[in-house]
Amino acid sequence: MAQAGAVFLEQDQFNCSICLDVLKDPVTVPCGHSYCRVCLKGYWDQDDYLGIYGCPQCRQSFAPRPVLGRNTMLADVVDRLKKTGLGSPAVPAAPPAPLAEPTAAEPGDVACDVCTGRRNRACRSCLVCLASYCETHLKPHYESQAFQKHRLVPPARGLQDSLCPRHDKLLEVFCRTDQHCICYLCLTDEHKAHDTVLASLEMTEKKNALAEMQRTSQQRIQEREKELQDLRQATQSLTLSAQAALEESERIFTELVCSIERRRTEVKELIMTQERTAITQAEELVRQLELEIAELRKRDAELCQLVQAEDHISFLQNYRSVCTQPATTDVPIITVDPSFACMMSAVSEFQALLEDVCQGGFVNISEKVSEVTIIQNTLVKVDAEQNTGKSSNNLLI
């Protein structure tokens, strides 16, 4: 017996709006619309990089990505539909939620392909029509049965690039053998027996690989930032150390110069003192020699006078006093050409010795200074395994 007030439904009402087939393992999003679990997962995987997930029908957005739960009641209805079928006039699909006022397309936006004059910003692109629509011109895709099987995606440019140049079909398969996208018809001829996979699955795998590359890149950035910080600290430390070394070396060399100046003054005083002492001794000896010469000249005169005497009595009386030898002064050895040649030779030897010491000290200082560095290059050995596939870098320690 027929149930009173029965509602006759069309089978299309239980179709997934993504794959346009009867729902398989139906899941319901928070806005109330239902889809195949696999279809909705693949649809959201395409927008995974945005971090915002929307309903393909009403375009309501969710963040974070909702956890999909199986709609048990709808799954039971679909199972019964498959077994018994429902035949009745089609009921038009409910229109989407009221749309906001269209927004004019700005530079960089995808513009509506239907608008004339002032073009509005597109909100969806159709992979069947190969056109983009604003919210106003998208309404037929939700209200008319003729567009129910069209696939809508976020606004995209270059929709013609999504078609196979040979078969004018959507590029939905990725050929791993030839590394490019193909359509389903390509699988039957030139790409037969090739390693192929759904383009959405390949994108997911490559995104995972890119995520790993990004993680490695971010880790490397952190390492380089740490090395940059250490390098800046080392540079600052080296600058402070160099300034301290300059001040200390300036102090030491100033003391050395002062010490040389003191020695120079002392040598000058030694020479002048020795000159005064030697001249004083020579002047005293000159005075004594002059006195002795005067006495000798006086005695010589007396001898001459005595030799000329005629009176023998007077001669004999004065002879004894005149013949007595006067006291003489012992004269030291006198250098005929005195000079400071030996002293000047000693100064020259001191100069040569000092220059040798300074040269040796400078070489030692120069070697120690050249050892001070921030970066030391260390050669990294590359083994056979690295030569076959892995890259190697020169480490900066």
Rank of each mutant, 00 (worst) to 15 (best):
M213N: 04
T239P: 00
T254F: 06
L228N: 09
E385H: 07
A94P: 02
I334W: 05
N120G: 06
K149Y: 02
A244D: 07
K226R: 02
C31T: 08
T28W: 11
V197N: 05
L99Q: 06
S217A: 06
E205A: 02
C186G: 00
R320P: 00
N377A: 15
V286Y: 07
R157G: 02
I52F: 11
S314T: 15
L256H: 09
P165I: 03
R121L: 02
G69F: 11
R124W: 00
R262W: 08
Q281H: 11
V153N: 07
D337H: 04
C31S: 07
K41M: 13
L256G: 09
E135G: 15
L86N: 14
I374K: 08
D168N: 15
R118K: 12
R59T: 02
L240G: 06
V331P: 06
T204C: 08
Q148V: 06
L240E: 08
N394V: 14
C175Q: 03
N364D: 11
I279D: 12
G85L: 13
T335L: 13
G42N: 14
L20E: 11
D48S: 12
D109I: 03
V257L: 13
H191W: 03
W44I: 01
W44D: 08
A146T: 07
C358G: 06
K268N: 14
R224N: 09
T239C: 06
D161W: 03
L50Y: 09
R264H: 13
T239K: 06
L23A: 13
L198M: 05
A209H: 01
Q148H: 03
P56M: 11
A234Y: 01
V357T: 14
S241P: 00
P64L: 09
T324M: 04
H141V: 09
A282Y: 05
S61T: 14
T328I: 14
A244S: 11
C16E: 02
R215C: 04
Q386T: 13
A105D: 05
K390E: 11
E367M: 15
L138G: 12
H33E: 08
V91L: 14
C134Q: 07
D356I: 01
M1G: 12
A111S: 10
S17I: 13
V347A: 12
S241W: 05
L68E: 03
D189E: 14
T204E: 12
K207D: 15
L138D: 11
M203E: 05
E135D: 10
L354G: 09
